[in-house]
Amino acid sequence: MASQGARTAAAPLDLAGPAAPPRRNGELVFEAPWEGRLFGLTLTLHGQGHFEWEEFRERLIRAVARRERAAAAGGAPFRYYEAWRAALEDLLAAKGLCGTAELDTRERQLAARPPGHDHGS
């Protein structure tokens, strides 16, 4: 665990620029819990050596740019962690770690759960 902590502490999160996660008063801002989970998943995978940070960062910058352009052209408003998610999925598929098809399947399964399934458990 200590070595993983050291590795994740070395993940060079951009403090500024197109790849930088949103902050408020310097703290990372997650508008919803899923954004934090996504962030944590990415850094955990990186910490365990599944990819170099720059491989993720390149994809993130491209995904941010695409979504910025779409938003400027009147599309959906830009949301940083949507770009992050797209970049991570793309990278996981490229590395053969998790494919888009199985993600789609799992997402449909979860969506099919009855409402209130996670209450009182």
Binding site: D14, L15, G17, P18, A20, R23, R24, V29
Partner: peptide, 11 residues
Amino acid sequence: AEPVFHAPWEG
């Protein structure tokens, strides 16, 4: 919740 840069070009 202002981002440090409002658009990538600023960064």
